[in-house]
Amino acid sequence: MEFYVRKGRIETYGSSIELEMWDGRKGKKLIKESWNIKLHEEILPKYDLIIVSVNTEQLPGAAQFLATAAGHTPILIFNNVWQDLKSSIAPLSMNNVVFGFPGAGGGIADNRLRGGFLKMVFLEKPRVGTEHIIQLVKECFESAHFKISWIKDMQNWLWNHFAMNAAMETEVLKRGSFSALMNHKDSFANVGLNMREMIPVLKARGAKLDTISLMLTKVPPALLGTLFNKVIFAKGSLPRLFMEYNNSKAGFAVLEVVREAKKAGIPLPRLTMALEHAEHHKPIENSIS
């Protein structure tokens, strides 16, 4: 696999990266090695498939760049999306793009990538005009022994997933990091309360609550906290390790939902308070005023 990086980054990253990755395709296997990587500061339209997995706020820039750099190369968007799918990847053509989401997590620091992946990847069911790309992506992941969970309505799935991320990031803003989130017993009870607060925003844009959103909003907060702490993110579990290794900056998902709610006149006191008390609350306040 080859990676595109911005100009000047090849020298920064070098030719290898230290891996500490948990492989969940068959049980639980730790991969710990130095991985030789091939980096490019330019993209030529010569690849079978381009996979885009960037920070959510970077997706518009990535789409703009690929619109000229990728040619007719098929593109898989492995990303959180809050906008409607078509506008989120403009000016790329929807006929050249398919949407999915990985069952993975982690973070990188000091040239060491820590985290891992589960055996499941989520992929949208074929849209008219994308059948050949879907088949290509399917063969790619199945040949690597991943299983595919087919999503009938990817737009709705991503809206729900983005809202869940915002509910989690609200607590990360309060706790200071994703790893700290794991060590507070009330965190996931609060995630449920945050999700409940966002339901009117989801409904205002026409989203239907999926199974996870319903669980977050219907299960009593105290029980939800126990379920997450003792089962879903139990100590030693891969999902917990992925969260503990996540060193990304939280807040963008919260900001996007608050912006949407502000336009619709929907109050979000829990999310707004988290933004206001974050270290970067001043620029955020200016951006939503």
Rank of each mutant, 00 (worst) to 15 (best):
V258F: 03
D153T: 04
V81M: 07
E256F: 01
E169W: 05
L92Q: 10
Y245M: 15
V231A: 15
F233I: 05
H161V: 00
K125V: 02
A67V: 02
Y4D: 09
K7H: 00
A166L: 06
A63E: 08
H161Y: 08
F65R: 01
R6K: 11
A163E: 11
G106R: 10
R9G: 00
M21G: 00
R9S: 07
L255E: 08
E11R: 02
S177E: 09
Q135H: 15
W35Q: 10
N55L: 12
A144D: 12
L44S: 13
R112H: 07
K46W: 03
N286I: 01
E57Q: 12
I108Q: 13
P269T: 07
I108T: 06
I50P: 09
L30W: 09
A144P: 03
A166R: 05
W82T: 12
Y4M: 06
K174L: 08
P220S: 13
I17W: 00
V172E: 03
E139M: 11
F233H: 13
G106F: 01
H132D: 12
H277C: 10
T217A: 13
G206F: 08
M1C: 11
W150G: 03
R114H: 09
P126Y: 08
N190V: 01
I199R: 14
G236V: 04
N194F: 09
G27W: 03
Y245W: 12
V137C: 14
D210T: 05
H277E: 15
K138C: 05
A204T: 05
I75R: 11
S149T: 03
V254M: 07
E285H: 08
S179C: 11
H184D: 15
G265D: 07
I266W: 12
K262S: 10
G14T: 00
G106C: 03
F252H: 13
K7I: 01
G116L: 14
M198R: 04
V121E: 09
V97D: 07
R240M: 08
